[in-house]
Computed example of a mutant assay.
Amino acid sequence: MNLSAIDIGILGPAFLAGLLVLATHVPLGREVLDRGIVFIDLAIAQIAGLGVILAESLGLPDGGLWTQVAAVAAALLGALLLTWTERRAAEQQEALIGVLFVLASCVGILLLSGNPHGGEHLKDLLVGQILWVSPAQLTALAAVSAVIGLALALGWNRRLGRFGFYGLFAVAVTASVQLVGVYLVFSSLIIPALATRAWTGRRRLVAAYLLGAVGYALGLLLSALFDLPSGAIMVCVLAACGLALALTFSPSRVP
């Protein structure tokens, strides 16, 4: 244990990034569960990552404007494809989402096969680099989160039909996956929503936000104290907190 590793200058921005991710992912995660398309976030996140890999393969600056455009464009194309498949084959939608995830993953691996830093790129895509979030990234994430939050509050995800939900989802995931990685994006969406299914109304939303915030805070703290990979330990802590909450507040115990 290394108490001197607790640096608020690093952990503070990382925790703020986590809160911004939760701001959009908690309500979207609840809708994902209601729709029965749990793995959509993995697929969209992987497609957005594929856009980043493709942009870098074409020689565009890492993290530059055009890389972000490529990521958003790829995610929106994926959202458009899933909108079409839901209309044509709704019963097979979850299976098709899984196939899309595998295809995007494999294409990304093929694109990085000749890159000497390909393994590092894949690791960053999966577990993120939340400890090294910059002020510019935080500002951009805050702006995107505010727009998505407003859109959800106004019900645009339903007013715009099938693509309304998939499109908002694609933008939200694209904004977060490059900071926290595919695994933490999935965990932020599904674990709080799943652990609070016994709750209803505003209580469920508040409990999900608190669960996510505690999971991020404890995960970051453990990562610093024991020099553990931040993304991986936060996923484990979120899962542990979610299990504890679900067992403590079973449907028969929730008022």
Rank of each mutant, 00 (worst) to 15 (best):
T24N: 07
T24S: 13
T24M: 14
T24F: 12
T24H: 07
T24G: 15
H25T: 11
H25Q: 12
H25V: 08
H25E: 06
V26Q: 06
V26L: 15
V26I: 13
P27G: 10
P27N: 13
P27I: 15
P27S: 06
P27A: 11
P27F: 15
L28V: 03
G29E: 04
G29V: 09
G29T: 11
G29Q: 12
G29C: 02
G29P: 06
R30Q: 11
R30E: 11
R30M: 14
R30K: 06
E31S: 15
E31G: 14
V32F: 10
V32A: 07
V32W: 03
L33G: 08
L33H: 14
L33R: 14
D34C: 14
D34Y: 13
D34T: 05
D34H: 14
R35M: 15
R35N: 07
R35C: 12
R35P: 03
G36I: 04
I37W: 08
V38M: 15
V38T: 09
V38F: 11
V38Q: 15
V38E: 11
F39R: 12
F39S: 05
F39G: 07
F39P: 04
F39L: 14
I40S: 08
D41Q: 11
D41Y: 04
D41L: 03
L42W: 01
L42P: 03
L42K: 01
A43R: 04
A43T: 01
A43E: 09
A43V: 04
A43L: 09
I44D: 10
I44M: 08
I44T: 11
A45N: 13
A45M: 10
Q46A: 10
Q46I: 06
I47Q: 14
I47M: 08
I47K: 03
A48T: 00
A48G: 04
A48D: 00
G49S: 07
G49D: 02
G49K: 00
G49W: 00
L50H: 03
L50C: 01
L50P: 01
G51S: 10
G51M: 05
G51K: 04
G51T: 05
G51C: 15
G51P: 06
V52S: 12
V52W: 00
V52I: 15
V52R: 02
I53P: 03
I53Y: 07
I53W: 02
I53S: 04
I53R: 05
L54F: 03
A55Q: 02
A55R: 02
E56N: 10
E56K: 12
E56W: 09
E56P: 01
E56C: 06
S57R: 14
L58I: 05
L58P: 12
L58R: 13
G59V: 08
G59K: 13
G59Y: 14
